[in-house]
Design a protein around this nucleic acid. Structure first.
Ligand SMILES: [Mn+2]
Ligand SMILES: [Mn+2]
Ligand SMILES: [Zn+2]
Ligand SMILES: [Zn+2]
Lengths: 141, 141
DNA sequence: TTTTTATAGAAAACAATTATCGAGTAATTT
DNA sequence: AAATTACTCGATAATTGTTTTCTATAAAAA
């Protein structure tokens, strides 16, 4: 993993810096689909001088070299995901968390759409919204 | 249609104003999925004094009374749709236009996801991106 | 090393959206 | 119809997420 990002950066002419490694490490070791601010806050303790702009610029690079994908779950900010398989997401409308949707095969659906449209489909994002188990429990009390 | 929005507004305690009717009429007679600025520009000629803030506030109300849905196609601004059926959208990554995806049944897919997750699913949005027929033609020349 | 080049971070700029507020207008009451 | 009330418009300012600019400095190359 470390090797991967290091050589990927270098191969594309980007420098390997502690900030970039820290940001990628943080993102690839969480399932919380954080936005720029969450990443910034998390790294604040360890990298007190890091700025939000660095997070944004790094995400731009990581996206470009194919290490992260950008999510747009109907909020006012973008979220980031280091898992590069194209999987659906679900957002809890009460607590706001965004999680993966597992165990669902999107290929059949994607193929159906690809064949039914004149667009040349390059990708897609599926967002569900609803209430997470936690919030359901809270509500029923 | 006119009747519908008029009575819906009144029933929910909102006043029926020319601006609101104009915005809703414009939106329901286009398939371009405009964002606030596009709506504003389009109405500028007929309503020279209308402000962007009014467009935003009106969209908020129209969303609340269930007459429009808000789209989030991975851009930096929201788009609006007066068609309330839940249908997938596709955005051309070259010219930026957003169109409907027709003739595809999402129910089976939605059901599969609903049953595979512990979330109580309330809704979803499906976005595809690719290249529209026009831009494909341009590219091949 | 030394030299070259890209980057980090502070600060300012930007763009989409939201909030505030006073004057105006529609609905309601008299 | 007139008066009262409550809501709304649009100008302006504020906010928020993101991008740009600039320069000392860290990383890569020589
Ligand atoms: Mn994910
Ligand atoms: Mn549509
Ligand atoms: Zn929740
Ligand atoms: Zn196009």
């Amino acid at each position: 993993m470390e090797v991967c990002i290091t050589s990927l950066l270098r191969d594309k002419g980007f420098k390997v810096t502690p900030q970039r490694l820290a940001i990628y490490n943080m993102l690839s070791s969480t399932r919380s689909h954080p936005n720029a601010e969450m990443i910034f806050n998390e790294l604040q303790a360890m990298y007190p001088t890091m700025s939000l702009a660095t997070v944004y610029k790094t995400m731009e690079i990581l996206k470009e070299i194919g290490l992260v994908q950008v999510l747009n779950a109907g909020e006012d900010s973008f979220r980031y995901d280091a898992v590069m398989t194209n999987h659906p997401h679900v957002r809890c409308t009460e607590c706001g968390k965004v999680e993966d949707v597992y165990d669902v095969n999107i290929d059949a659906f994607v193929n159906e759409v690809s064949q039914g449209t004149k667009y040349q489909i390059m990708g897609q994002q599926f967002y569900f919204h609803g209430i997470c188990p936690n919030c359901q429990r809270k509500n029923s009390n």
